[in-house]
Computed example of a mutant assay.
Amino acid sequence: MSHDNLKVFPSVRERYDSLVQAGDIAADPAQEQLADRFDRLIRELATKRLATKSSALGWLFSRRSPRHEIIKGLYIFGEVGRGKTMLMDMFHQLVPAKRKRRAHFLDFMADVHERINAHRKAHKNGETKQDDPIPPVADALAEQAWVLCFDEFTVTDIADAMILSRLFRALFERGVVLIATSNVEPDNLYRDGLNRQLFLPFIDLLKTHVDVVNLDARTDYRLEKLNRMPVYLSPLSDATKQGMDEAWHTATEGAAVSEDHFKVKGHNVMVPRAARHAARFGFADLCSKPLGALDYAAIIARYQTIFIDDVPILDYARRNEAKRFIILIDILYDHHVHVVISAAASPDKLYEAKRGTEAFEFDRTASRLFEMQSEEYLSEAAQAQEMPISSEA
């Protein structure tokens, strides 16, 4: 197959232009440039893989690139709602590689920690002589996918920060190509984190293996598309509670309601009210308890509609709850879960603190809460309910 034969695959730019022509999005020069950049990356991946394989399709299936060859991925940062995820998803759909993976970054890191813990347990039990879990974990991840697409690349957890440099050095050595979206440029990752100096080598490594692109689009398309639906009720009042109860009755079709309990990594997760495919929580049930990304993923693997009552206005003193709420909304959004929320204020007024990483991160959460009320998101959520959701990353 010649280089020109790659045109048989639809390009990111062609897909983008078709959305513009259909009136689904407005044309934007910055987004057009990024679409073209993704197409150049697809051609570069194809050209370099073809150059190292005797088979014309060998680049799709090779386990790793030669170690001296660096295929630079893309790290796209910019403010919320600029189209980063939309364009990366187009790339992921169109790049003709069978071993590719698209994940929310927090889901991916939860998977990594689970693999590391499993390896350490195997070593302790004498099932392997390899005491360092990073090489075998990197082998398994690279075998699964050599094109990795991450949405919302962010580092706030010290456990993640301390392993990223070694993990990604091993992945890059195995020919993995990284594409990521983020709200922050690489130099601001883990900005106020504990022992940040130990994290800095990862930033240098990252910038060696990706081209950094600032998507400076002209407007927030998510808010342009906003179409408010009765799935976010505020402020808190008797009328709000009645609205939540009516929506719950509709979602459960009057089915019997009961508690649900299940285990995640050895600890118990409790669902206060569950019926059919819907689960209902108070804010405190989800965010005041020591729950994390794996717990939230396990919940949405069991329930397709999530109700969250009584989200309060948060401040710096409740930053741990705010951090859990940020992670929760990221996972609900990424999996297109139908969510009904009652809250003390509109999304952009829910976090009052002006300092700390949570204040910075909450801008994304507010934008997503707005979008989760739109007709488009609700339509995607309805389609997602037709397919099972895996709790695995």
Rank of each mutant, 00 (worst) to 15 (best):
L233V: 10
S234W: 07
S234Y: 09
S234F: 08
P235C: 04
P235Q: 05
L236K: 05
L236S: 07
L236Q: 09
D238C: 09
D238R: 15
D238G: 15
A239E: 15
A239H: 10
T240R: 09
T240V: 14
K241M: 12
Q242T: 14
Q242E: 15
Q242M: 13
G243I: 01
G243S: 12
M244C: 05
M244R: 04
D245G: 04
D245R: 13
E246I: 04
E246S: 05
A247D: 03
A247V: 02
W248S: 08
H249Y: 09
H249K: 14
T250Y: 07
T250S: 13
A251K: 05
T252R: 08
G254Q: 03
A256R: 10
A256P: 00
V257G: 05
V257C: 12
V257P: 04
S258E: 14
E259G: 15
D260S: 07
D260L: 01
H261R: 14
F262K: 06
F262P: 04
F262Q: 06
K263D: 13
K263Y: 13
V264P: 04
K265D: 13
K265W: 10
G266K: 14
H267Q: 11
N268M: 14
M270R: 11
M270N: 03
M270F: 06
M270E: 06
V271G: 00
P272Y: 00
P272Q: 00
A274R: 04
A274Q: 06
A275T: 03
A278L: 10
A279S: 02
A279I: 01
F281S: 01
F283H: 10
F283T: 05
F283A: 11
A284V: 11
A284C: 08
D285T: 06
D285N: 10
L286I: 09
L286D: 06
C287Q: 12
C287K: 08
C287T: 13
S288M: 13
K289F: 09
L291S: 10
G292E: 10
A293L: 01
D295Q: 09
Y296W: 04
A297R: 09
A298N: 04
I299W: 00
I300T: 06
I300V: 13
Y303S: 01
Q304M: 10
T305P: 08
I306S: 02
F307D: 02
F307V: 04
I308F: 03
D309Y: 01
D309P: 01
D310A: 14
P312E: 07
P312K: 05
P312I: 06
P312D: 08
L314G: 04
L314W: 03
D315N: 12
R318T: 15
R319A: 10
N320Y: 15
E321W: 11
E321K: 14
E321H: 14
A322T: 11
A322W: 02
A322S: 11
K323C: 07
R324S: 12
F325Q: 06
F325T: 04
I326D: 03
L328I: 09
L328C: 09
I329W: 03
D330R: 03
I331T: 06
I331D: 01
L332M: 07
L332C: 07
Y333A: 03
D334T: 11
H335G: 00
H336C: 12
H336P: 01
H336M: 10
V337P: 02
H338L: 13
H338E: 15
V339K: 03
V340Q: 07
V340R: 03
S342C: 02
S342Q: 02
A343V: 03
A343K: 01
A343T: 03
A344T: 05
A345N: 08
